[in-house]
Design a binder for these strands. Structure first.
Length: 155
DNA sequence: GCCAACGTTGGC
DNA sequence: GCCAACGTTGGC
């Protein structure tokens, strides 16, 4: 089992939205970065766990946990001219972009903010914290995963 | 293949 | 709203 962190702007799609979806499941569409795509296409497996990270908002940070329930398949929003994620260079015969389906597991007991993550030396190696990192889908090590979960009931 | 210009991300 | 960092595009 692997661990991941996936970013979304809560104004677009939040952990609350995921919880309210039918089956509490949603395709993680709209990723238009090759490295992030490769993680979803090549490495994510059913049963993997992921932090739901809220980005570009008042308090960026981890707001919940989700699980991969469907492995990489073509992101059809790239084919749709009306979609804001439309990419004319992708087509159903040769899809350029991939997505996975994720399912709500739970909210974290509180938002574990980016600022807080930065305070912990044990997490200094996290991809999320590297300067200039803009990946929206990235791996989290098992050690980082459980260390972060251990922060949950502190304040 | 180089690289300047441009668009996007995302914290602050 | 600002802007640093980064990825992509396209002329050459």
């Amino acid at each position: 089992m692997r661990y991941w962190l996936m970013k979304s702007e809560p104004g677009e799609f939040s952990i609350d939205n995921l919880e309210q979806r039918p089956q509490q499941t949603e395709p993680w569409d709209g990723v238009r970065n090759y490295q992030a795509r490769n993680f979803m296409r090549d490495a994510m497996r059913v049963g993997d766990q992921a932090f739901f990270y809220h980005s570009n908002c008042k308090t960026p940070g981890i707001g919940g946990i989700m699980e991969v329930v469907r492995e990489g398949y073509p992101d059809h929003t790239a084919f749709d001219p009306d979609s804001k994620h439309f990419d004319p260079k992708s087509n159903p015969e040769e899809p350029r972009w991939m997505m996975v389906d994720v399912k709500y597991v739970r909210h974290t007991e509180r938002v574990i903010s980016l600022a807080e993550l930065k305070e912990h030396d044990e997490l200094a190696g996290m991809k999320l914290l590297q300067k200039g990192n803009r990946l929206s889908v990235m791996p989290v090590s098992e050690h980082e995963w459980f260390y972060i979960l251990g922060l949950e009931d502190h304040s």
